[in-house]
Amino acid sequence: MKAWLLKDFGLSNLHLEEVPTPVPQPGELLVKVGAVSLNFRDKATVDEPHRVRKPLIPVPDAAGMVVKVGEGVSRFKPGDRVNSALYSRWIDGPPGPNEPDYCLGMPLPGGLAEYMIIHEESAVKAPDMMSDEQASTLPIAALTAWYSLMDIGNLQSGQTVLVQGTGGVSIFAAQIAAAHGARIIATSSSDANLAKVKALGVSEGINYKTHPNWEQKVLELTEGNGVDITIDVAGGNGLNQSVAATKVAGIITQVGFLTGQTSALNLMPLIFRQTTIRGIAVAPRTSFERMNPFLDKHKIKPVIDRVYAFEEAVQAYEHLARGPFGKVVVRIAD
Results as ranks from 00 to 15, higher is better:
1 M>W: 01
6 L>F: 08
7 K>T: 14
8 D>I: 07
12 S>F: 02
14 L>I: 05
17 E>W: 15
22 P>A: 06
23 V>F: 08
26 P>Q: 08
27 G>N: 07
30 L>Y: 14
36 V>H: 01
36 V>I: 12
38 L>F: 12
38 L>R: 14
42 D>H: 10
42 D>T: 07
43 K>C: 11
44 A>S: 14
44 A>T: 09
46 V>C: 11
53 R>M: 15
56 L>P: 12
59 V>M: 10
60 P>V: 05
71 E>I: 09
77 K>R: 12
79 G>D: 10
81 R>M: 11
86 L>Q: 07
87 Y>D: 15
87 Y>A: 15
92 D>K: 15
95 P>R: 00
98 N>A: 04
103 C>P: 02
111 G>E: 00
111 G>M: 02
114 E>N: 11
116 M>E: 03
124 V>P: 08
126 A>L: 08
134 Q>F: 06
137 T>R: 14
138 L>M: 12
138 L>R: 12
138 L>E: 12
140 I>G: 14
141 A>C: 15
146 W>Q: 03
149 L>H: 08
152 I>S: 05
153 G>K: 06
157 S>I: 00
158 G>F: 00
160 T>A: 01
165 G>M: 03
166 T>N: 05
171 I>E: 05
177 A>V: 06
179 A>S: 13
180 H>D: 14
188 S>W: 11
190 S>W: 15
192 A>H: 15
208 Y>F: 06
214 W>E: 03
216 Q>E: 00
220 E>W: 00
224 G>L: 05
224 G>A: 07
225 N>A: 12
230 T>M: 02
233 V>Q: 03
233 V>C: 07
236 G>V: 05
237 N>R: 01
238 G>H: 07
239 L>M: 08
252 I>G: 06
252 I>V: 10
265 L>C: 10
267 L>I: 13
269 P>Q: 05
269 P>L: 06
280 I>E: 07
281 A>C: 12
283 A>I: 13
285 R>L: 10
293 P>H: 05
294 F>G: 02
295 L>E: 03
296 D>F: 01
299 K>F: 02
301 K>Q: 06
305 D>Q: 09
305 D>W: 02
308 Y>P: 01
309 A>M: 10
310 F>V: 03
317 Y>E: 08
322 R>V: 07
327 K>H: 01
328 V>L: 00
331 R>A: 11
332 I>L: 03
